[in-house]
Amino acid sequence: MNDDVVLSARQITVKFDDHLILNHISFDVVRGSTLAIIGPNGAGKTVLFKVLLGLIPYEGTVSWAPDVRIGYVPQKLSVGRDLPLTVFEFLKFKEEDPEKIKELLQSVGFKKEQTSHIHNDLRVLQTRIGSLSGGELQRVLIAYALLGDPQVLLFDEPTSGIDIAGEETMYSLIHNIQREKNLTILFISHELEIVYKHAGNVLCLNKERICFGTPKKVINQESLFKLYGEDTHVYKHHEH
């Protein structure tokens, strides 16, 4: 494996019973780059992440650079509002030092000084995980992933359940973190606009690898048709 390559996936195939979920997927990810994975619902995007994390059985090979530390930000957690686990207790799974936890929470957008809502500043530490909104939880999950001091971050749809304004903030946040820590980022997205703006490479997935390369080159009428079916058109980036 080339020194610049942090992840090399070869001929990944996943079947659930006799149902083919992923069919011979191969790609490389270069250190410090950003790869977007796009595709329709049921295309196998989350399954591919689970393969990369070693959570489910698969055929093929996944080679990570030796000793690489991987952070994973899941789409959501399976917790109810009634779980008495606070944000602080959750983050303490990975880090004992409260100062380091506070520092990291500030880097994902929680304010040090008190704001009008306790969920927006460090007082969020004492609130329950289950009472956070989608965006708040996502930022806490990012902080959790960053606590392991990872070199690679895997994001499963960083903006699901977040409004458009929050979405842009989330990506700027991810972008800043990436620049600061020279991270390699893999993210799953539904939004082509986000992909154009933030990804160096894109992997189009619909059980098979439909395209792979820079977004400008590989996202076109043909690949979109293969991904989403008839009624799609090339979607050029435009400002809101």
């Binding site: 994390l53 917790v79 995980i129």
Partner: peptide
């Protein structure tokens, strides 16, 4: 909280 976070 999350078996995926635990396993990974």
């Amino acid at each position: 909280v999350s078996d995926e976070l635990a396993t990974s």
